[in-house]
Design a protein around this nucleic acid. Structure first.
Lengths: 332, 332
DNA sequence: TCTACTTTTGGAATCGATTCCAAATTGGAG
DNA sequence: CTCCAATTTGGAATCGATTCCAAAAGTAGA
């Protein structure tokens, strides 16, 4: 049994396709009686309007797509929840796809916006260079979250990464940290901004760059352990480590503990994100809370504005406030 | 500047729309010279075929959708990686959407299959009742992963949850566990199967149902802690706890440790999934490894068969082998 | 009952890419 | 140079839902 079409419904209901379509779209210009006939026919034939035909005619899909490197980042999944809720309340369906950091995969997904498979795009962690994001944003509905390209058409929602890193580093210093270390990721813009904040806080406390340690790598648990192992070879040892994510911080704490040292007494550790990992860690992690859900909501609102008012290319970033969450992994 | 169409490209290249389309679809029946002209025109106009028009005519989208309650389950994100890789190598784009356990949201997403927005559907954790999944599977391309409805048209990919639970429970018994407890989730089919396996292992070891403890709840860290707190009120205390996920197990270990007891000496704890949490926990968790990536790959292959050979409604489940991973949270 | 409305309806045109068929062109053999 | 076959091309028809316009039906007032 092939799929039923408006034609079939019209025939079964004994009305014209126009009337069927009007019923489908809740046009008020339909008599009660034909509305009933059409509704009955739709049920009888188990009819669903074909998305591609509708999209073609209407020139929009009411779908948006979010792109992220991977799905298991707690910040991303929380932000995406915000996107989804905001989208739903505006009648949009929101989908997400991981790029795995593969430029080809990313390109293929971005093409979904170019070819009209979706109306808008939310980018969490672009792999493509800033210029490309920029160029795309010129003509298409794109909003960035967390990672915002530093360019002309920069636009999107995030926290102030530099300030957040500054705040938490200052906390480390205020609680006695002098020999500071950071585990960061220079591949990401946010990572570079956090490094800036870290260095600025150190500098303001009169700690020279040479007294400072820096290790670089991806933000996963095992990398955290490995990089910490490197840091622990330093002499003198660091007494405070700022990590770019809670997961890395968990690895850091683990490695310190395994080395027979105590957190925070010997070495204080700070994370970033306030994910559940921060609470799972022993001791629980001092960290930076990102308002991920709200960032997602706001990102969708921004996107909606771009999609519906085509001329509007509201520029600029929106920064949401972060929060320093102090727990037991740093002294007090 | 509006979007260019095949018509525009044809005019610019000085050929007919048919020829343009043939170039787009790499038909061999095009002369070298017109291919060049068309390619040049496409580049000049920055032309992209409109997805909805193509989909309408071709009656397929080369897109699939995966549904899950939430995105941050490590098993789901790993399985989805498998889906994505398999899909990509067959020319499909795979998208994912969280339902948040909301039936309305789920319905809306399932409608994307019904209305032809996507060609196939992979369900990780359905909220709808088994009958509905079953009915849907009768006519549409749907494959289940991890959670498989227990019904006529049952089909999908998972591990043998009962056997896995049996195996790990037997391990708990073999390492001295007598007073067994389980933290499970009866809301999910897999949860019920795991409970069966747990009980079967206990029974075979001559442990009566009354000697056994059971706590029920969602699979997150805080629930794990709360339920463990309940279990620790029992007298005598349990000496081995099987948890339905590593995250719950981490909460369980934490609560036990905070109560001044030792894992595994006083109470052994086992997890499930072999996610990174299992290694982050101290002590590291004995757990069951699920071949999530392969489950995802296989699920897509199954789906592909259903999508391309419409008559084929291959029934049945595919079980992939699990693996007992023994670490320090259980005695040896 | 007739006029002047408003409400409701039918159906053709439309969106843009693909595909099929017939026509045009090319190439090679004789 | 002719003829037949193979290659290439143009363009109309098609996919299914929406929308616009004109026509039909309904309603109210006089």
């Amino acid at each position: 049994m092939a799929r039923a079409t408006v034609q079939d419904v019209a025939k079964t209901a004994g009305v014209s396709v126009g009337t069927v379509s009007r019923v489908l779209n809740k046009s008020p210009a339909v008599s009660e009686s034909s509305k009933e006939k059409v509704t009955a026919a739709i049920r009888q034939l188990n009819y669903r309007p074909l998305a591609s035909a509708r999209d073609l005619r209407r020139d929009r899909t009411l779908r948006i797509l979010a792109l992220a490197k991977n799905l298991n980042s707690p910040i991303i999944s929380e932000a995406f929840r915000g996107v989804g809720d905001a989208a739903a309340s505006s009648g949009y369906v929101s989908l997400i796809a991981p790029t795995a950091g593969d430029p080809e995969r990313e390109q293929q997904l971005v093409d979904m916006l170019r070819n009209g498979s979706v109306d808008g795009l939310i980018m969490f962690s672009p792999t493509m260079p800033d210029e490309d994001v920029d160029e795309m944003a010129e003509q298409l509905s794109v909003v960035q979250v967390c990672e915002i390209a530093d360019s002309e058409a920069a636009f999107g929602v995030s926290i102030d990464d530099r300030q957040a890193a500054f705040d938490i580093t200052r906390h480390l210093i205020e609680t006695g940290g002098r020999r500071l270390a950071m585990i960061g990721n220079r591949a990401a813009r946010s990572g570079r901004l956090r490094e800036e904040g870290f260095r600025q806080a150190a500098a303001e406390a009169g700690i020279s760059r040479e007294q400072t340690l820096f290790a670089e790598g991806e933000f996963d648990f095992h990398t955290g352990r490995r990089l910490t192992r490197e840091l622990l070879k330093a002499d003198p040892l660091p007494d405070a480590v700022f990590c770019g994510s809670d997961t890395v911080a968990a690895g850091c704490v683990r490695e310190i503990t395994d080395a027979g040292l105590r957190v925070p007494d010997d070495i204080a550790v700070a994370g970033f994100d306030d994910s559940v990992q921060a609470e799972m860690c022993v001791p629980e992690l001092t960290t930076i809370r990102q308002p991920a859900y709200d960032m997602g909501r706001l990102a969708f609102e921004e996107l909606l504005a771009r999609m519906t008012v085509p001329g509007v290319h509201r520029r600029g970033r929106t920064f949401l406030p972060h929060e320093l969450v102090i727990r037991d992994s740093t002294k007090n």
